[in-house]
């Protein structure tokens, strides 16, 4: 079975750029009704029983398509999925009817305790099988395909036998799931592990990509004094990531793209300007491709 093609627009009209919906921006959004492709939310924030969170998201959903991004399903766990949490995710998806649903290649729960971070896993025959099983279960429960996001990582595992791009390609092949290509995560991991992000992207199974994430990162260093980037989501997207993004959409075409700014959330105009920059990158790439066709 070949990797399913997830490049169709999936009902998202151009422009297909979106931002994370943050409650502090709600008034600005409903008052100005900005032209955006979609809003994305963390599924877990809408797993309460009601109140303002649901009310606001209903109002957003009336006006825009939604992307539902889970952070707590722990698809990368060795043990079984938390069925109760999967049901909660399915309930949120049913309630808000998102156009896109995604989760992470990571684990976050261990022995019943939720660790509230996206933790890495080795890439082995055992883990590719286990992650694929989990994704099958998720897609069955949701009654739709999901997108799996590539991680940002700070450590590697000695026991890994698969390259990350091959690992993701194989999961997509086995399950028919799509991929969420987080270009910032590629950049962060590339700096952290000393590989060329362009080579990673050249090897990435782009036909499976249904969404792109772009986010800011923070600088740090490791024990050896080598640079370490932290996937902080707390700042504008760096120029190097914009460059990788242009390269990616040159190959992929316009793809739903999310500006992911979760910490130190800026004022609405700042977040919106990041989205407009993504739109310009798409337009410029499209134009340069047209020129190339003409020449």
């Amino acid at each position: 079975m070949t990797v399913a093609d997830h490049r169709s627009s999936r009902g998202l009209a151009a422009p297909s750029v979106g931002v994370g919906f943050k409650p502090e921006h709600f008034e600005a959004i409903v008052e100005t009704h900005p032209g955006l492709g979609f809003f994305e939310v963390h599924a877990e924030n809408y797993m309460g029983a009601g109140g303002a969170p649901h009310r606001r998201l209903d109002a957003i959903r009336e006006r825009y398509p939604l992307s539902l991004h889970g952070v707590g399903l722990s698809i990368g766990s060795p043990g079984p999925l938390d069925r109760a949490h999967l049901q909660r995710l399915a309930a949120v998806a049913k309630r808000f009817e998102p156009t896109l649903v995604s989760e992470h290649l990571a684990w976050s729960t261990h022995e019943g305790a939720f660790l509230n971070d996206l933790l890495p896993l080795p890439y082995t025959n055992e883990t590719v099988a286990r992650v694929s099983e989990h994704i099958d279960e998720v897609q069955n429960a949701l009654g739709r395909t999901m997108l799996l996001e590539n991680p940002s990582t700070y450590v590697l595992f000695a026991e890994s036998t698969w390259a990350e791009t091959d690992f993701l390609r194989e999961i997509a092949r086995r399950t028919g799931c799509g991929l969420l290509l987080d270009v910032s995560n590629v950049f962060v991991s590339a700096v952290n592990h000393g590989f060329d992000p362009e080579l990673y992207l050249a090897d990435f199974p782009l036909s499976a990509v249904g969404e792109i994430h772009l986010a800011g990162c923070a600088d740090d260093s490791d024990d050896a004094g080598l640079p370490l980037l932290i996937d902080a989501h707390n700042s504008p997207v760096r120029d190097a990531v914009w460059s990788l993004y242009s390269t990616t959409i040159r190959r992929l075409g316009a793809t739903p793209t999310l500006i992911e700014w979760d910490n130190d959330v800026p004022a609405w105009p700042t977040l919106l300007s990041e989205a407009r920059r993504a739109e310009r990158a798409i337009a410029e790439t499209a134009k340069s491709l047209e020129c190339a066709d003409v020449l």
């Binding site: 971070d117 700070y154 595992f157 740090d220 490791d222």
Partner: peptide, 27 residues
């Protein structure tokens, strides 16, 4: 840091692992 993890020097790296540990606690 866990023995099976490594950074660019091919060995476990405390500051790299600390990113995860601090993320958990701070979150």
């Amino acid at each position: 840091p866990p023995a099976m993890t490594h950074g660019r020097m091919g060995a476990p790296d405390a500051r790299r692992f600390a990113v995860y540990r601090n993320n958990v606690a701070v979150g």
